[in-house]
Amino acid sequence: MICREDRLVITFFTTTDAMAMEQFCREDGADGRIIPVPGHITAGCGLAWCALPESEAALRALMTAHGLQPQGVYRCMV
């Protein structure tokens, strides 16, 4: 059985942007990790940033600070 949990999922237009997000989060000590984009967000493949829901404000601020534009920001069960 796979347990699903409420998470913040941030998607990006390119793999490069996802890698940049990971780098910025690591440098900042921010929460989260790379996951495959959940199929109910975008059918197909690609990488997303998955974090605890309460990290949303901090992660949005981090992306803004680095000029990184997300494709979408979602709350969902993953």
């Binding site: 390119t14 793999t15 690609g46």
Partner: peptide
């Protein structure tokens, strides 16, 4: 491209 697999067109964002 590893992203947007169901689009008929190749993604337009650099560097993809």
């Amino acid at each position: 491209s590893g992203v947007q697999s169901f689009l008929h067109q190749h993604p337009s964002r650099m560097p993809t």
